[in-house]
Design a protein around this nucleic acid. Structure first.
Lengths: 143, 143
DNA sequence: TTTCGCTATGCAATGTTATAACATTTCGTG
DNA sequence: CACGAAATGTTATAACATTGCATAGCGAAA
């Protein structure tokens, strides 16, 4: 697992950080900070305070293991931790699941727009909301 | 101004709604809800409560006059109120200004991805952060 | 071994953003 | 005027996030 990367970078992959990342991977959908906080509280048998979870999330984001979903104030494990973050998220508003994708062509188009504006892009947030395949099909059968 | 659209749709373009929209237009950058709240408080000579401003913003968003900038918890007037919202925002992290753009080709690409996933897109959030032209050039001259 | 410094964590308080729930006012229409 | 719908007022609270400072653990230098 991605623990190796931390070792390699001389960083500590502590129990809290590992647990947060595991929770995120086990869920198929974004988890909110206070939800993670509750999970951590359960795990450790005592209530933890917000900074604990935010610090872990900050670390995991810096290392590229986690992405924040801005439209949900929630967090997702990143499927492509190596790539400079240009991921596209498809988020189902019915079941809450999210699907991560890359789209190099779209990136290029945005770079073009940026060029026209003289703008230098550092960070991309692309979140597309709607209905996923399974929700669409269950809708169809129930009619 | 966009007041006509409301009349046409049989909707009330009230003082609060107008003032909020004016504030947003006058600022070149996204404004946060509580900032608007302060402005409204000044304007009316008494403190207003959060729901007041959130209701106005909700109305303006429904009518397509305003877009929420998810990455800043702030609000922007929409430059293309008629189009089904598929706008791209370039947001400068230095000066805070934002630039709105449309990109039909990128939309088509995302539709393609969506097709592959069987996903039906309802709403797009595309926010690109970085440095704008004027901030970049002032950086350059100061070196 | 002690001391120092670094990193991670604990903890309390507070700041910020957003909504729920219910009361009241405003205003066009019959 | 009376009514209903829409807008606004009011209070409280939920949900999200950060600041600031204290403490613990650990490895390297003294």
């Amino acid at each position: 697992m991605a623990e190796a990367a931390c070792q390699q970078r001389g960083l500590q992959f502590t129990e809290i950080r590992r647990f947060v990342l595991e929770c995120l991977w086990q869920s198929g959908q974004p988890i909110r900070a206070y939800e993670l906080l509750r999970m951590l509280g359960q795990k450790f048998g005592r209530p933890l305070s917000p900074p604990t979870v935010y610090r872990a999330l900050e670390f995991l984001q810096e290392q590229g293991f986690v992405t924040r979903i801005e439209t949900k104030n929630a967090f997702e494990p990143c499927a492509f931790p190596d790539r400079d973050h240009a991921c596209v998220f498809f988020i189902c508003d019915q079941c809450g699941n999210s699907f991560e994708v890359q789209n190099a062509k779209a990136e290029a188009l945005f770079e073009e727009d940026a060029g026209n504006l003289g703008f230098q892009i550092d960070k991309r947030v692309i979140e597309l909301h709607g209905a996923c395949a399974s929700c669409l099909s269950s809708e169809a059968t129930s009619n």
